[in-house]
Design a protein around this nucleic acid. Structure first.
Lengths: 339, 339
DNA sequence: GCTCGCCTTGACAAGGCTGTCATGCCTTTA
DNA sequence: TAAAGGCATGACAGCCTTGTCAAGGCGAGC
């Protein structure tokens, strides 16, 4: 029960007023170094921690950052949390998670949260980050927010993204460098912005290396295992099948692997398979999947950083800040030279 | 900017004192029904939401439930959050997530959190739930907590669990009912309580159905894909291999599937494979994995329920409350009759 | 030596809500 | 009819911090 040490005790022990203690705590200027040290010692001696409720009631900060999420993969969500907390802890902020039910009226769910808890900022993950109604509520409530990998309205708010086009380009180039020329592609969910970008990168790489993008080697998928499985069946169960397949995400790539297994196509000797995202599943197949790692934790940390730095508003040039992070090509065993 | 509606406005509009509004908000007794309705209407009309900081500063509740987690799978963590929030929302509670760094001094990380934010309760997931130092801190700070699937010291606190023994028993019985008698088993991480329980259930089922547990058909694993893969290699690469393998979790079962693929053993015609946990990966293989679904969301909801109901303390009989939830056998395509 | 202005510090109010205690009224009991 | 008790409500203090503003101390410049 070491509880209930208040700022008053600290003030008493260090022989200053509570206001001065507050100053030291908040790293405000105009405190003599001598005094500062004395206060810090008292804080340490009493094991004092300021009470967040009182702080946020009195001041403007709530020391809470919200993470809103909808639906994406658990691995993604967890990584976002880990990345965000890493940055938040440094400044004494806490993370409050708000899973949203995307089948209902998301904006209506968001409004009460913002109202009761005055969060200092919110991190929005896809696909909530593209829900205009939610953005409206956030703006109406005056809560700063950063979007992770937004798809629409890029200029509307601060955001953190990865270069999907370039990543897809490099993955395709990797396959080409292994000697592949007939590279099948499985597109992602048409409503996700990343889908278009990834296809764009693939097409650009093919073209630049002088290979045609064969329409019958490009299939539509929906980011699900099953859709990858079905697309792969169409792609592979025929004589002029591609020698490599690049799926827009790992789940679909796993679907491709499953079909390859069924058709007794050796991976990677007969068929190379590449995915995108580096989900845990990518390592849980044999052979392990070559894929693109999105630096999710780093992206979330960057988002938290923007929020904590108060840098979410448009700057002089009119554009809200946007950070572009590097991806990483993860070459494992599912891709290899032909033969 | 619909912000800043306070209890005073509500009081004014409904013609009562702020205290009465407070009573209505908190469902306290001794409010005339007439008055209650009038206040509720004013609340609705003004779209009023009490400010959590003020509430927790003034009262004893913080309206925050913590979820501490360490390391387990993202799917697990996310499910816990979803389950807990479902119950918490009903009562206006929010979820605060605290990933812990298990490589460091976990208790030292927990203490400051508890100190600044006075959470009303904490949900502990494995393996933090078995960290005695953390439990000590929680108790010292007087914060109620519920452990999910704890392994040690079961009587120490309230907990929510699943019957691992019975689930493993039933899965084994399922395999036996398909005609299998030589059923291999891959144990889980020896430091996880569930490992022992699952093995126990397997062994009991074998014995009760008159089948011997062959020591050379039981392998040690560590809950990882790789350990499952390696265990499966030892189990399958020999003439007297089992006709079915029951792995203590899905990741290891996926390892078994990978080996089966490599050895060209048809699943389930030549080899049945069963897992445990029903992770997302179970559906992302072909054929899909037969497994046991742990009702994680329901367990987390039950934990939140105990916390919100204040029922975490030992009752008259001396034992803290413990809830045992039902699992579900999920039979998919990876198990079938010998043939 | 005096004024000005900066640095350092403190007193006090405010923030929105709940807990405590007091009040008035109505119903029950003797 | 008077006393007692229960219910419905309100006044006010207090929760712990930060923001505002004022005050005192001290060195610089005249």
């Amino acid at each position: 029960m070491s509880s209930k040490v208040t700022i008053h005790e600290v003030a008493r022990l260090s022989g200053v007023s509570i206001k001065t203690v507050s100053r030291v705590l908040n790293r405000e200027p105009n405190v003599k170094n001598d005094t500062r040290v004395r206060v810090q010692e008292a804080v340490a001696a009493l094991n004092y921690r300021p009470n967040i409720s009182a702080r946020s009631l009195a001041g403007s900060k709530a020391y809470l950052i919200g993470v809103f999420f909808d639906n994406p993969s658990p691995a993604y969500v967890t990584d976002v949390q880990l990345g965000a907390i890493a940055r938040c802890r440094e400044e004494g902020y806490h993370l409050i998670v708000e899973p949203l039910d995307s089948t209902g009226d998301v904006a209506a769910q968001v409004e009460p949260m913002l109202h009761t808890l005055r969060m200092d900022g919110v991190i929005l993950t896809p696909p909530v980050c593209d829900n205009a109604a939610v953005l409206d509520v956030l703006e109406a409530e005056g809560v700063p927010y950063v979007r992770l990998s937004p798809d629409q309205d890029l200029g509307r708010s601060a955001s953190v993204r990865m270069d999907d086009v370039r990543a897809a380009y490099e993955m395709t180039a990797h396959l080409i460098s292994l000697g592949h020329t007939d590279i099948g592609f499985i597109k992602g969910h048409p409503e996700h912005g990343a889908s278009h970008l990834r296809y764009e990168g693939y097409a650009a790489a093919m073209k630049e290396h002088g290979h045609a993008v064969r329409e019958d080697h490009v299939e539509q998928g929906w980011f699900s295992f099953r859709s990858g499985f079905e697309a792969a069946e169409r792609l592979l169960d025929r004589p002029d099948r591609p020698t490599a397949i690049f799926a827009s995400n790992d789940d679909m790539a796993l679907g491709v692997m499953a079909v390859a297994n069924r058709l007794r196509l050796e991976v990677p000797q007969t068929l190379s398979v590449a995915g995108f995202d580096d989900t845990p599943g990518a390592k849980v197949v044999w052979p392990q999947l070559t894929t693109v790692r999105q630096p999710i934790q780093a992206m979330a940390a960057a988002a938290a950083d923007l929020l904590l730095g108060g840098a979410t508003q448009a700057e002089g040039d009119g554009a809200p800040p946007s950070r572009l992070l590097d991806f990483e090509l993860v070459v494992r065993e599912s891709t290899g030279p032909i033969g």
